[in-house]
Simulated assay, not measured.
Amino acid sequence: MFVCTDNFTRSVIAEYCMKDFLSRSNKTSIKVASAGIRANSDISRYSGIHFNIMNELNIDTSDFKRTLFHENHFKEYDVIIAMSELHRDYIKELYKREIPLFNEVYNGQKTAVNIGAPDSKDFVEQMKKLVHFIYEATPHIIHNLEQRTTL
């Protein structure tokens, strides 16, 4: 499970990129989802351009639904991955659980997956880079998770 703030951009991109990769690889034993620590927030001002970019990559996002993170997710998912330090720290403070960052699982770097501000002039290009970054990281994430015995 991927966790971000609003369960609208980063965690959703990670979820759907992974679902797509697993489907194309015929790996059906891995359950993937995403959630947000504030998934009940107002997202009306947010851009949905990432859905268009994923659809251009033939990634089906038609069943997208925001999910609020809750403690039961620890029972439902073997691995919970934070998209940034904010999400990791929230889980640690509220649930007393350590979870890794996306980049930590991907390439060993303890850094956040960042997103640009929707009002920046190059936002669409930033979003394309973000989607492609996560898309290209996905096979490595799966491989690295399969190699780990504990997180």
Rank of each mutant, 00 (worst) to 15 (best):
T61G: 01
E85A: 11
N26H: 13
Y46I: 04
F51L: 12
R24C: 11
G36T: 09
R66F: 01
H50R: 08
R88A: 09
M54N: 08
T28S: 14
M127K: 03
E104P: 00
V3S: 03
N52V: 08
L145K: 08
E104R: 10
T61E: 05
S120H: 11
E125D: 13
F51P: 03
P118C: 11
E76D: 13
H70E: 13
H70G: 05
I80D: 01
Y90R: 09
I59H: 01
D63N: 15
F2V: 12
T61M: 05
M83R: 11
H140W: 05
Q126R: 02
L101C: 07
V32N: 09
Y95H: 12
D122T: 08
Y95Q: 07
R45F: 15
H87P: 05
G108K: 03
H70Y: 09
I49M: 06
L86I: 13
N55Y: 03
V32C: 07
R45Y: 14
F51T: 04
A137N: 03
S23T: 10
F133Q: 14
M18L: 15
D60R: 03
I30H: 03
D60H: 06
Y90G: 10
D119S: 10
A117K: 14
A82E: 00
E85Y: 08
D20G: 08
S23D: 12
T28V: 09
I13N: 02
R38N: 15
V131G: 06
K65Y: 10
Y135P: 02
A137P: 00
R24K: 15
G108W: 01
S47F: 11
E136H: 09
M54V: 09
K129P: 00
I142E: 07
L101R: 02
K31P: 02
V79A: 10
V131Y: 01
R97P: 06
H140C: 08
I115E: 15
R10Q: 11
L94V: 15
Q147I: 01
F123C: 06
F21C: 05
D42H: 10
T67Y: 05
N103M: 12
T138Y: 00
T138D: 07
P139H: 07
S23G: 07
K92V: 00
S29H: 15
H50G: 10
N103E: 05
K110W: 00
M54R: 03
E125M: 10
V105N: 00
T149M: 09
R66C: 04
N26D: 15
H70C: 10
V105L: 05
V124N: 14
K92W: 04
K19D: 03
I30F: 04
E71H: 13
E146M: 14
R10E: 02
T150K: 14
E15H: 03
E136C: 06
